[in-house]
Design a protein around this nucleic acid. Sequence first.
DNA 1: TCGAAAAATGACGCCTTGTCAATTTTTGGC
DNA 2: GCCAAAAATTGACAAGGCGTCATTTTTCGA
Lengths: 263, 263
Amino acid sequence: MMRLTPKQQQIRFRETQILELARPMIADGGLSALSMDAIAHELQTAKGTIYNHFPNKEEIVLALAVQALDLRLSLFNRAVMIRGGSRQRIAAIGIACEVYVDEYSEWFRAEQIIRHETVWGKTSEKRQEILNTCEIRCMDTVAGVIRDAVAAGDLEMSAAGAIEDICFGLWSLVYGGLVLEATSPSLADVGIGDARGAIRRNCNALLDGLGWRPFYEPAAYAAWVEQVHECLVTHVASSKPGVVALPGRADATARAEKQGGRK
Amino acid sequence: MMRLTPKQQQIRFRETQILELARPMIADGGLSALSMDAIAHELQTAKGTIYNHFPNKEEIVLALAVQALDLRLSLFNRAVMIRGGSRQRIAAIGIACEVYVDEYSEWFRAEQIIRHETVWGKTSEKRQEILNTCEIRCMDTVAGVIRDAVAAGDLEMSAAGAIEDICFGLWSLVYGGLVLEATSPSLADVGIGDARGAIRRNCNALLDGLGWRPFYEPAAYAAWVEQVHECLVTHVASSKPGVVALPGRADATARAEKQGGRK
DNA sequence: TCGAAAAATGACGCCTTGTCAATTTTTGGC
DNA sequence: GCCAAAAATTGACAAGGCGTCATTTTTCGA
């Protein structure tokens, strides 16, 4: 493998900087709050340079969404590694979703925004496929737990529907619940005080309804949530995403030089 | 109530025209595709006149979202009026959601878009409250069916959680599923061919898991879907929303029927 | 060291939204 | 029917954003 020249390192580093600057903009203002001019200004570079990295704003959102799915997948994989029965392992994935939304809320926003024909349609197929691959891998992780449950005899697949059906159901319930929690103007007004608790209880009811044993037991479940939550939050703290190491001091000098050399 | 002068009628009519023009724009391009200039041009008026009706683009989306919830509520109310057991009636609401998304997809988009802090934050409190009221009424319709089920002995409320919990669970599952169906780049790639069917099966599993009797029976359920679907589609065809008659007198009856509480 | 290739630049064209002073239309009292 | 006040309309304008591209600067391999 080729070593990176200083220039290439600089370019790579700038790419992470662009994404880091764009992330909060998108998170609290949507696509329209992502200003290419602002990023260029912040990075003390010309706008054209930013367009050298990403052909348009949408592509930046997609790049962030790919990061998002990577982070989620990492949490999923960690969650299913925790020792426990099949029912506990599927619950762990649900908890991973919660941790994901809480700890990586800015990435979650990017993931939501990329889900729009308008945005999606302006992005490159190349990166689209990367995202799809990530999504499939997330699904596969969930599907693996379901298959294990069937193999262990905790779940029968007769009338319940295909494995993908169950994945989709859990996905819908959790995703829908979290989106509603995050975006519904007045959940409290309609009587939902504890959205997270409601999502968890409903997930368990769904699993019960599918005949996934052992059935829901609040006390044992609460203890498991506690345990998994702690484990995952620790995992998050240790992985520190987005903070990419500086490419060494070469960058500082280059920057200082550039300051003087501007027209 | 005061009679409207011709001028006032003209203004009111223009308001419906603005919304009708805005609806498809928003539906297939999001907020950024809603062009005030285009609307003004299409209506052959000056842009300032449009701003006389709505202080900004976001307010137009909110107005459409209010229409959306009105339409949904109308479908919900129709659905629960169909004679049947509690389990059938709750299923009817689910079917109403499907019909809503299919028949009023443009409104559904507006409803999704208003769910963003950026958009919501720029709208007037007055209209926000109207929307909240509509949302609460929708929830109340669902909650009513649940209460009926408890009263009829089809459902026990012990460990299952509060009525609002169940509402929220169904809402999340259906909303999440429909949003994923509408916006997930490649559901087929992850193995979900029939999203609608998956949503239905999962809803039934959830209800089973809550202990809501009688339990899921595919054949009987399929027949019920057929029946309710037909009834609701007929209802949609007869109510012809969005096509507001010219401010003549013919409109009065339709409007009186549909308007529960505007102003 | 040199010349070709890669990267950076920033002014430019074209688009948007929302404002506001000036103008036209409507209304209501007589 | 008439007129003044109020309401509605108008469209030029300011502010700002995206994406382009001809030109300039930098990098890199031979």
